[in-house]
């Protein structure tokens, strides 16, 4: 009898304690429910030959026919390779640089300077990819581009037709993506760096640790959980690509496709004129399933290596 009332009190206490958090979670939860879970039955479209008069569920089944176009193109290997390799490059380079920037920002003692640097680094992240594509074009075009009209002539070099030369684009795309994204990720890491207890550094200083030793022995190990979470989040997107980056920035120039075409841009180019919801749904489902499998696999790997850092 007594225990029951005790339980009730515990429950009431718990609610008083955590209630506000649940409330804060509600809008996000609702967003996911409406935006991500409600449309889930729509993936059935990937297996249908759509007939709108019969509706999505009434349409005839189409087997796996909607999927075969991805395979029949003969380009699957190239586009998968591009998507995965670029994402890996973005993950590695982006993480390393973002952590470096976060640590550097943390060392800036002047508050005003810190604010200014953070804002300046974050600014490109807030820009639309379309705007970025024009900035890139202002640098790279033959007739009016800054590189071809100012930099190369000054060095005594011939103009380069960037939009017809595939060789330069892996570097250009990685540069642009890093420049654009680093502001956001470095702020995430900065929050973690700021959260590291000052006592640890003080103790290290007393023991005579150099700045580098502090970074490698204290900051980085403390950042490990954040790095792993960010890594798994990025892995889940490894089969998706930033459409703007790969379509707008290279101006959809065909000759560059061997190094710029990703799954998303290929699907767009192939299906834009087809008005075929079945095939489009099939491509999306394929990307999601592979992404899901990769998340489970990478989490399993992390669990093997260091159990306490795995997400689930």
């Amino acid at each position: 009898m007594q225990s029951v009332t005790q339980k009730k009190i515990v429950r009431a206490n718990r609610f008083r304690k955590y209630g506000p958090y649940y409330l804060m979670m509600l809008p996000g939860l609702l967003y996911f429910l409406i935006n991500n879970y409600l449309p889930m039955p729509g993936i059935i479209l990937a297996f249908k030959k759509v007939n709108w008069r019969l509706g999505i569920f009434g349409s005839k089944w189409n087997g796996l026919k909607n999927f075969t176009f991805l395979l029949s193109s003969g380009q699957l290997a190239t586009i998968v390779r591009n998507t995965v390799l670029y994402n890996l490059a973005f993950i590695v380079i982006g993480t390393v640089l973002a952590i470096a920037v976060a640590i550097l920002l943390n060392e800036v003692r002047s508050k005003a300077a810190n604010r200014i640097f953070q804002t300046l680094i974050l600014l490109p992240y807030l820009m639309s990819m379309v705007v970025v594509s024009y900035l890139a074009y202002a640098f790279l075009s033959v007739e009016t581009g800054y590189v071809n009209n100012a930099i190369l002539p000054a060095l005594g070099m011939e103009p380069i037709r960037f939009y017809q030369e595939p060789g330069y684009w892996p570097f250009i795309l990685i540069l642009i993506n890093t420049w654009k994204g680093i502001g956001f990720t470095s702020v995430v890491y900065l929050a973690a760096v700021v959260g590291i207890s000052e006592d640890l550094f003080e103790a290290a200083r007393v023991d005579g640790a150099s700045k580098f030793q502090q970074i490698f022995k204290i900051t980085l190990p403390c950042l490990k959980p954040t790095i792993i979470t960010m890594f798994i989040l990025s892995i889940s997107k490894i089969f998706f690509s930033d459409f703007g980056l790969f379509y707008q920035v290279p101006k959809n120039s065909g000759i560059l496709y061997p190094v710029t075409q990703t799954i998303d841009t290929y699907v767009y180019n192939a299906l834009m004129n087809q008005n075929n919801p079945g095939m489009s749904a099939a491509a999306g489902l394929f990307q999601s399933v592979v992404g899901c499998v990769l998340v489970v696999l990478s989490n399993a790997l992390i669990r093997k290596v260091s159990r306490e850092d795995a997400l689930f």
Partner: peptide
């Protein structure tokens, strides 16, 4: 359909 989609690309 598949061939046409691939050709258009």
């Amino acid at each position: 359909t598949n061939e046409v989609a691939a050709l258009s690309a």
